[in-house]
Lab assay of single mutants.
Amino acid sequence: MSIQHFRVALIPFFAAFCLPVFAHPETLVKVKDAEDQLGARVGYIELDLNSGKILESFRPEERFPMMSTFKVLLCGAVLSRVDAGQEQLGRRIHYSQNDLVEYSPVTEKHLTDGMTVRELCSAAITMSDNTAANLLLTTIGGPKELTAFLHNMGDHVTRLDRWEPELNEAIPNDERDTTMPAAMATTLRKLLTGELLTLASRQQLIDWMEADKVAGPLLRSALPAGWFIADKSGASERGSRGIIAALGPDGKPSRIVVIYTTGSQATMDERNRQIAEIGASLIKHW
């Protein structure tokens, strides 16, 4: 067993022997300050990975656009099909120029040879490739089937209704393509630590998230040396920005953090900075 597999395998073990964890309200002060700075709603939740206990939250049951954070859930659904023998990570999918949508930095380079399901999930999570996400959605039956998968997991909140890039419209009070911080955190925890996926698939999912290449300005920018993070960011219209992450010190994840914001007129750089500052406060008061 590799060191990485050993780390994931021990998560349920540590759950039975973990020391108590305590929240620090200073982080919530920073979350509220971020709302003021951005002139927008901010949703935040911090969940103990082992016990599932909510350590701190702000607007945990308000809806926010999922943006590209849905791609982790999508690849979780794909992996569940792999575990059930209904899909193969090595299966090659061919597509055409007509399938390409905006922001497809990986898939646009493989029009001649296609990409495997594994490569598409990697592109969707690590590079947030939109065409990769659409091709993967097709393999499971579309957005409604992803919503059904989540319902079967016990998540009756999170929903995907449209494809890339339309799902990023982020219209106020529109429940399409939205989640709540509490629902997303719970669902992510189930995918990473529960029995829904095999150990190999849980490890694959967290490996893809750990290799995320487009979330550098967010929580990763505040991460001390030696800390672990596996994450997925998202951005969409109407000043929306978000990130879902499993992180912790000593090279292993111990908490789930979900941050969403929407309705801001601030620049992308400012939205990134506010999320990074929330992360810095979280780490300082860990």
Rank of each mutant, 00 (worst) to 15 (best):
T139R: 09
S240M: 03
P181Q: 00
D83A: 02
P249L: 02
Y260L: 11
E87I: 09
R241I: 04
L219V: 04
L282R: 01
N168R: 03
Q204E: 06
V157E: 08
T178E: 00
E145S: 13
E175H: 11
R41G: 02
R91G: 02
N173K: 10
T186M: 15
P65Q: 04
T147D: 05
A133R: 11
S57A: 14
S80L: 12
V31R: 00
A200T: 14
T112V: 13
T198D: 10
R238M: 12
S240G: 15
R7L: 06
L223K: 02
P165G: 03
E87L: 08
E87G: 02
E119S: 07
N134G: 00
L146M: 12
M153Y: 04
E175Q: 12
E46K: 03
A245S: 05
V21T: 14
H94N: 13
P224D: 02
V42S: 00
R59T: 05
Q204R: 10
I244Y: 00
R41W: 03
L55F: 08
R271A: 13
I3R: 06
L89E: 03
K213T: 08
L136M: 07
A246G: 01
E108K: 07
G76V: 05
G43S: 08
L160S: 06
A148E: 15
F149I: 08
K252L: 09
G242S: 05
I283V: 15
L196C: 15
K252E: 10
I256A: 01
H24Q: 06
A170V: 13
P143A: 02
D231E: 03
F228K: 02
P65R: 03
L111R: 06
A182C: 13
V257I: 12
A235S: 10
G242A: 10
S240H: 15
V214I: 09
T187H: 01
L19C: 15
E166S: 09
F14W: 07
T126V: 09
L188R: 00
I54S: 05
L160P: 00
L218V: 02
P60R: 09
R176C: 06
G141E: 10
K32T: 06
P60D: 15
K109W: 10
M184S: 00
P253I: 06
R162T: 05
G52A: 04
L79V: 03
I283N: 00
K30R: 09
L160I: 12
V29E: 15
V214D: 03
Q97V: 15
W163M: 09
R189G: 07
P249M: 03
F149C: 05
D177H: 01
G251M: 11
A170E: 12
Q4A: 11
L219A: 01
H110R: 09
D269F: 09
D48V: 01
L135W: 00
P181S: 01
L223P: 00
R118V: 09
P249K: 06
A246S: 04
S80D: 09
T131Q: 00
P172T: 07
H24P: 09
P172W: 07
P143S: 02
Q88C: 10
F13W: 12
T69A: 00
R63T: 05
R220I: 00
R241T: 06
R220Q: 01
L192E: 00
V31I: 13
G194D: 10
E145C: 07
E62G: 00
R176S: 07
Y103W: 09
A148C: 11
D113V: 08
M127N: 07
S96G: 15
A124D: 00
W286R: 00
F17C: 11
E119N: 07
I171R: 13
L10G: 10
R118S: 13
H110L: 08
I125G: 00
G90V: 12
T126A: 09
A123G: 05
V8A: 11
R220F: 01
R241M: 05
A211G: 10
D99Y: 06
D48I: 04
A77G: 05
T126Y: 09
I3K: 13
G52S: 03
A266V: 08
R81D: 03
M66L: 15
L73M: 08
T158R: 00
K144L: 14
S201R: 06
W208F: 03
S57Q: 13
T27L: 03
A246E: 02
M268S: 05
R255V: 01
S80R: 13
T178F: 01
D36G: 14
E270D: 09
S201L: 06
Y44C: 00
M67S: 11
R238I: 10
S96T: 13
E169Y: 08
E175Y: 10
M180N: 15
G90S: 14
D155G: 00
L197S: 01
S51I: 01
H24C: 05
P60N: 06
S2I: 14
L47A: 08
G194S: 13
E169I: 13
I243E: 01
V106R: 04
I54R: 06
